[in-house]
Computed example of a mutant assay.
Amino acid sequence: MGQLCEDFSVLVVDDNEINLMLMEDILDVIDIKKVKTIDSGIQAIHEIEQNPNYDVVVMDICMPGMDGYEASKKIRHMGYQGRIVALTANLLSKEDPKFQEAMMDDILLKPIDLNMIKKVLCFS
């Protein structure tokens, strides 16, 4: 069996401060303690440059400046091998060309469901 969910390090990227706090609380409930929050795609790129060892990046899709697709593509091109999970309130399919071009691994829909986040982050 793989790494325990509790041992994961997670980078959460979202331009909405309330969403970031909510994700921190949800991840704490499922015992993920190594969490860093970032509020833009550009900051996420800088963070991965400095610390490429996150197990999972949870990336909001709709952000001003650089959206989650573009940030994910850049992170992948930097050599990041961990999982990138799209975070969106919109219907999104893994077959969507933008999702595939961004080389994302999975999708979390807002509002976040505790069981779904555990399934997507820990058991995929």
Rank of each mutant, 00 (worst) to 15 (best):
E101N: 15
L121M: 12
S124K: 09
K74V: 11
F123P: 01
I42Y: 14
F123K: 04
I107K: 04
P64E: 08
G65S: 11
I112C: 06
R76A: 13
A86H: 02
M104R: 05
E47A: 14
L4N: 15
Q43H: 10
R83A: 09
I45P: 10
A44R: 11
C5K: 10
P111K: 06
K36H: 09
V12T: 03
L114C: 01
K118W: 00
L87Y: 11
P97M: 15
I45L: 10
L114Y: 03
D113Q: 03
K74F: 07
S72K: 06
D106T: 05
V56A: 02
K36S: 12
A86F: 03
A89Y: 03
P97S: 15
I61L: 14
D67L: 13
M78A: 09
K110A: 00
V35R: 10
M23F: 05
I117G: 05
M116C: 02
Q50M: 10
N115D: 13
E17Y: 00
S93M: 07
E47D: 10
D55F: 01
G79Q: 04
K98W: 07
D31K: 15
V35T: 06
Q81N: 11
A86M: 03
I112T: 05
S9P: 07
C5F: 04
D67Q: 14
F123T: 10
D39F: 10
N19R: 01
L109A: 09
C62V: 14
M103S: 14
M23T: 05
L91Q: 13
F99L: 05
V35G: 04
A71Y: 05
G68V: 04
L108W: 02
L27V: 03
D31L: 11
K34I: 01
F99N: 08
N16A: 09
D105M: 08
K73Y: 07
D60P: 07
R76C: 13
G68L: 02
E17P: 00
A89F: 02
I38P: 12
T37M: 10
D14Q: 03
L91R: 11
D15P: 04
F123H: 11
M104Y: 02
S93R: 08
S124A: 12
I117E: 04
R83G: 05
F8T: 01
I84H: 02
L87N: 11
Q43D: 14
H46Y: 11
I61H: 12
L109C: 08
V13S: 02
I48N: 08
L92I: 12
N90Y: 15
M23V: 03
L92F: 10
I112Y: 07
D67S: 14
G82S: 10
S93H: 13
K33F: 02
N51L: 11
H77F: 13
V120H: 07
D7Q: 15
Q81I: 15
K34C: 02
P52K: 15
D55W: 00
K118T: 07
P64V: 06
M116G: 00
F8P: 01
S93F: 09
M63F: 04
E70G: 13
Q100F: 14
I75R: 05
A44F: 07
D7C: 07
M21C: 00
L22W: 00
V57E: 09
L22E: 00
E101L: 15
S9W: 09
D55Y: 03
I42M: 13
